[in-house]
């Protein structure tokens, strides 16, 4: 197979784009897709201060490096979840990556916040994935606001967005469908959230990391076994294989038609501020403070 752009030998085949690329043309394609996402969705500009949520997996590492290569002003935040050996390994990967590419890395240790994830799992009656997501969103937003970042960038890829859209559609969850977007605008105390990788797939971030010789974590979260999103991803992969480009088309068409199909709700819930930490919430105490309270009661 030859590179569609320069006719050298290709190292990557992308049937969804009816193309193949050599290493250097693939990296240009990757950069172009991210730049297109940033510009099309008006995510941020070089004058903005960006916080990248860095998990240590391939997607967030690829995001951080590509933003750096494009000259954006960014720093990274890693959350240490305190999950046995897994958290230590991913933290080391994040630290080595940031040293190598001269990126400023901040680390929040949830154990020091009395929110060690295994402890939360032991004592919480609801699924740990939802609580863990809630805690992560809280700290990423809190840190970004406290340190005057304009934008929080996450490594969600096209595969993540499509499987989420698929799950929301299966449930016809109108509220979630209204909200799903590669950009969530700043609202009251919430920082603007963006997903610059939404036009790129997990396969493409893996290729990007390989070509830049980036070591990334492949350790699965020990608590994610049986999660529905992995099942949806498998189903969608079969669809993509038989109809190349279907994932991208499904998501792009959704974005184009969203405002007509799922117009934003005009009724707004009254936002309170948590009486303990000041975080925006629909109740008197925010979800994370409620978890902390519950843990202190049962310890």
């Amino acid at each position: 197979m030859k590179c569609t752009r320069c006719k050298q030998k290709a190292v990557v085949a992308l049937p969804s784009h009816n193309a193949g690329f050599c290493a250097s043309c693939f990296l240009l394609y990757f950069q172009n897709q991210m730049e297109k996402a940033i510009k099309k969705q008006k995510m941020f500009s070089p004058r903005h201060k960006i916080l990248v949520a860095l998990s240590g997996g391939k997607d967030s590492l690829a995001l951080a490096l590509q933003l750096k290569l494009l000259g954006y002003n960014l720093e990274c935040l890693h959350l240490d979840l305190d999950i046995s050996d897994t958290s230590k390994q991913v933290k080391t990967i994040a630290q080595r990556f940031c040293e190598r590419f001269e990126l400023k890395l901040h680390i929040i240790e949830l154990k020091k916040e009395n929110l060690s994830i295994p402890e939360v799992k032991k004592k919480l009656s609801r699924p740990i994935c939802s609580a863990c997501g809630q805690i992560k969103r809280y700290y990423f937003n809190y840190f970004a606001k406290q340190n005057n970042f304009d934008v929080l960038a996450t490594g969600h890829t096209l595969d993540d967005e499509v499987s989420r859209l698929f799950a929301n559609t299966l449930r016809w969850d109108i509220t979630y469908l209204q909200q799903q977007s590669p950009i969530l605008e700043q609202d009251q105390e919430f920082v603007r959230k963006v997903k610059p990788l939404y036009r790129l797939t997990e396969f493409e971030t893996a290729v990007f990391c390989f070509l830049h010789n980036i070591q990334y974590s492949t350790i699965p979260c020990p608590y994610s076994k049986g999660a529905s999103f992995t099942f949806y991803k498998r189903l969608l992969d079969e669809l993509e294989y038989n109809q190349p480009g279907r994932k991208f088309n499904f998501y792009e068409t959704f974005l184009k038609q969203k405002s007509q199909l799922f117009p934003p709700s005009t009724s707004k819930n009254k936002i309170n501020f948590c009486s303990i930490c000041g975080y925006p919430t629909l109740q008197d105490i925010c979800g994370v403070c409620r978890i902390k309270k519950m843990l202190s009661k049962t310890s």
């Binding site: 197979m1 290709a10 190292v11 990557v12 085949a13 193949g20 290493a23 997996g57 391939k58 997607d59 994935c129 595969d159 993540d160 997990e202 396969f203 971030t205 893996a206 290729v207 390989f210 070509l211 492949t218 699965p220 979260c221 608590y223 994610s224 999660a227 992995t230 991803k233």
Partner: peptide, 25 residues
């Protein structure tokens, strides 16, 4: 240490790495 496209030929003495890419949480 080179990526291969699906049309590439393989040979009996090759050592090939299959690196799965799906995120698992």
């Amino acid at each position: 240490n080179q990526l291969l496209t699906p049309d590439e030929k393989l040979f009996p003495n090759d050592t090939v790495i299959i690196r799965k890419v799906v995120s698992r949480g």
